[in-house]
Amino acid sequence: MKKMIILGVLAFASPAFATELTTNMVLGTGMAEVQKKLTDMGYQVRKSEMEHGDIEIYVVKGSKKFEVYVSMETGKITRLKSR
């Protein structure tokens, strides 16, 4: 029963704290902004660079590794590679 309540709370609460990266998610149009957003979401930023006008950031969280590409124009994730 207790488990059910916890699950219920989690199911209700999680959309408010979106921590899963998805394409088209808006992270920001500047490098610092994107880095901060990812850090706030619990990701550890490993490397960030500009690639063909997009921001490319390597992040890890727990046992997950991602390469995130963010458009500087829209601020959205254009490509997300789970590594």
Binding site: R46, K47, Y58, V59, V60, S63, K65, R83
Partner: peptide, 13 residues
């Protein structure tokens, strides 16, 4: 480069 510890660490790349 494929391990969590060294993923995205510049000197390894």
């Amino acid at each position: 480069m494929g391990t969590i510890r060294f993923f995205g660490i510049e000197w390894v790349e």
